[in-house]
Computed example of a mutant assay.
Amino acid sequence: MNVIYGLLAISIIVALIFLVVFIVSVRNGQYDDSYTPSVRMLFDDELVKSDSENSKTNDQNK
């Protein structure tokens, strides 16, 4: 039974270490996405063009 308590304590300590490492990495910007905004900028124009073309087509059909 003492082995279970020891393993439980060790697993909680390891989990807390991983939690601290995760929080530190998030605060340091490890998971910031610097690629998507530059690519999103390229696709926004195509979405606006398709929306304006749809509105032109709808206006011509009326």
Results as ranks from 00 to 15, higher is better:
1 M>G: 03
2 N>W: 05
2 N>P: 02
2 N>C: 07
4 I>D: 01
4 I>E: 00
4 I>H: 00
5 Y>N: 14
5 Y>W: 04
5 Y>D: 12
7 L>K: 01
7 L>M: 08
8 L>T: 12
8 L>R: 06
9 A>E: 03
10 I>R: 02
11 S>K: 01
11 S>T: 05
11 S>G: 08
12 I>F: 04
12 I>Q: 01
12 I>V: 07
12 I>R: 02
13 I>M: 03
13 I>H: 02
13 I>N: 03
13 I>T: 10
14 V>A: 11
14 V>S: 08
15 A>K: 01
16 L>I: 07
16 L>K: 02
16 L>T: 05
16 L>C: 07
16 L>M: 09
17 I>L: 02
18 F>T: 11
18 F>N: 12
18 F>M: 11
19 L>F: 13
20 V>C: 12
23 I>T: 12
23 I>Y: 05
24 V>Y: 06
24 V>F: 11
25 S>P: 05
26 V>K: 04
28 N>V: 04
29 G>L: 00
29 G>Y: 00
31 Y>A: 06
33 D>W: 00
35 Y>I: 15
35 Y>W: 06
36 T>R: 14
38 S>E: 15
39 V>I: 13
40 R>F: 13
40 R>A: 08
41 M>L: 14
42 L>R: 15
43 F>N: 13
44 D>E: 13
45 D>A: 15
46 E>W: 15
46 E>F: 15
47 L>S: 10
47 L>H: 12
48 V>L: 09
48 V>I: 15
48 V>A: 12
49 K>R: 08
49 K>A: 15
50 S>G: 09
50 S>E: 15
51 D>A: 09
51 D>C: 10
52 S>W: 10
53 E>W: 06
53 E>I: 09
53 E>R: 08
54 N>Q: 08
55 S>V: 10
55 S>T: 11
56 K>W: 04
57 T>Y: 06
57 T>H: 05
58 N>C: 05
58 N>M: 07
58 N>Q: 13
60 Q>H: 09
61 N>Q: 14
62 K>T: 08
